[in-house]
């Protein structure tokens, strides 16, 4: 494999992806910022002040890491699923298939695009959060590694969704009926300690719980689950998802006849 060609090709895909979401910033960057700002106002300022403390912190401080993570998850996923499915739908995936760009380069390029969009929106949401509460970071390495790994995992998930999708309906069904419930029930707004034992145990099968709590640990130093389990789950999903995506790409699943 000619690494020089692959490197140029990777940079080309990343530049194309970043230009895409910057070109349509009104659709990609503004809506999540407004939505999350509303969460800050309603759940943080208005209702949060009556909830009191959670996990030893003001509700606003508790909920901020979860909302940042929610923005990162939704936007990493959304960027890759819409961009890669759009590429398939318009047929310009053939530009890549015909070229010397290797499958692994295609995958890494799209994942990098998803991660950058997730981080861009996460950054915007973090800045917005500073208008509502003070934010100090307990551990930068944990915070950064958690947000990066989560963005990668959900970029892979978006890629897999796009690989299998046959219509635009297929790329909205998973985010609406699977991703959103998992995020809302993944400890973004509450500590699982508040739940009855049965539901607390059910929550443990939700992978997003580990990501949100890992990130919250990085910022606040509190978590409902062990940090080691969070890293283990993220690594598992990352490697498993990447391997599966590579398998599908190499087979040309729904790309080649």
């Amino acid at each position: 494999m000619n690494m020089a060609i692959q490197w140029v090709s990777f940079k080309t895909i990343v530049v194309k992806e970043v230009r895409r979401f910057m070109r349509i910033w009104v659709q990609t960057l503004v809506p999540p910022a407004i939505t999350i700002a509303l969460y800050f106002v309603i759940f943080g300022s208005l209702i949060g002040s009556r909830i009191g403390q959670m996990g030893g912190y003001d509700y606003m401080q508790f909920v901020v890491p979860g909302l940042i993570m929610m923005a990162v998850i939704q936007n990493s996923y959304g960027n890759v699923v819409s961009s890669f499915y759009g590429t398939k739908f318009q047929g310009n995936i053939e530009e890549l298939l015909v070229s010397p760009t290797a499958e692994v380069t295609i995958l890494l390029g799209y994942l990098a695009g998803g991660v950058l969009r997730g981080l861009a929106v996460g950054g915007i949401v973090t800045v917005l959060a500073l208008f509502f509460t003070e934010l100090s970071v307990e551990s930068w390495p944990i915070t950064i590694s958690m947000v990066l790994m989560t963005a990668v995992v959900f970029s892979i998930a978006g890629f897999l969704n796009a690989m299998y999708a046959n219509s635009f309906d297929d790329i909205s069904i998973i985010p609406t009926f699977v991703l959103t419930p998992l995020i809302y029930l993944g400890g973004v707004f509450y500590s699982v300690d508040l739940l009855p034992d049965f539901w607390a145990n059910v929550s443990l099968v939700n992978p997003i719980l580990y990501m949100v709590n890992g990130f919250r640990y990085g910022i606040l130093g509190v978590s409902d689950v062990s940090l080691g389990v969070s890293y283990f789950m993220l690594t598992l999903f990352m490697l498993g998802g990447f391997g599966f995506a590579m398998y599908l790409l190499t087979r040309g699943e729904k790309l080649r006849s």
Binding site: I5, V8, S9, K11, T12, V15, E95, S99, P100, T101
Partner: peptide, 10 residues
């Protein structure tokens, strides 16, 4: 330009 990049052109 994007197509050129896929073929390794600077």
């Amino acid at each position: 330009v994007t197509q050129g990049g896929y073929y390794g052109l600077s």
